[in-house]
Amino acid sequence: MAGTNAPYRPFLEVRNLTLQYKTARYLITATDDVSFDVAESDRLILLGPSGCGKSTILKAVGGFLKPAGGSITLGGSGIKKPGADRAIVFQEFDQLLPWKTALENIVFAIRQTRGAGKAEAEEEAKVLLKKVNLSSFAHTYPHALSGGMKQRVAIARCLALKSKIILMDEPFASLDALTRQKMQEELLELWADTKITLVFVTHSIDEAITLGTRIIVLSPHPGKVVCEFPVDWSQINSKNHPEYAGLKERITRILFRDMDFVI
């Protein structure tokens, strides 16, 4: 926001986004006319059942998919191709380079995207590994790390890019329930530390309320925005709080209303 009189412009703007992809026989519309904004330091959650195109939206923001209609702009400029200004954490555990140790994975990210020197990159990578509590696994190869550890390295690697926004595509979906809860807490701590803008895709209502500052609920086939909920954490600061249950109830009802004809 340059001048004082300049109108408020959101950081990430998704406008009337229509995404399509082709299979062997059909042209499938994944999302239809989806619009939303993300302000800086937001933690925006895209929530919806499978088939609502939430991951596809994230891929489009990542630049891996050309929109069939509508536009995506980040910091005022349109997104045309993948780039290091949008760090991505995937759901798959194989996103780490298996031929590099945890530390080397982060060093690689730093050096490839920011052209930093080796010693400098290593120092920075060590700090990041400490942030995700993996200092003692710096020299371990990914295949010897647990699922939760791999995702932590992936998150550290994303922070290493120093991008303005992090896109997370169900990063905790393949983890066991206990690890998942722990990772959510850690992610919130990291956010408190960095105040980085986050777009987080999930199909878990609990995860959405726990992590988000705003939740966008999408309906399936094709994906459309159903409604948007702000999550006020000064009000809901515990899962036992009545507000939490109320919000969860409302989102559940909306999701199941849409699910009726799907199941």
Partner: peptide
């Protein structure tokens, strides 16, 4: 080579020979 690893490479803006040598060859080793 998995789509995820390819996307990681593209995310780092690796292209051409850098993509081949830094992602494809080690991943296909």
């Amino acid at each position: 080579v998995s789509t995820t690893l390819r996307m990681v490479g593209k995310n780092y803006e690796l292209a051409g020979f850098r993509f081949v040598f830094k992602i494809l060859i080690p991943a296909a080793f």
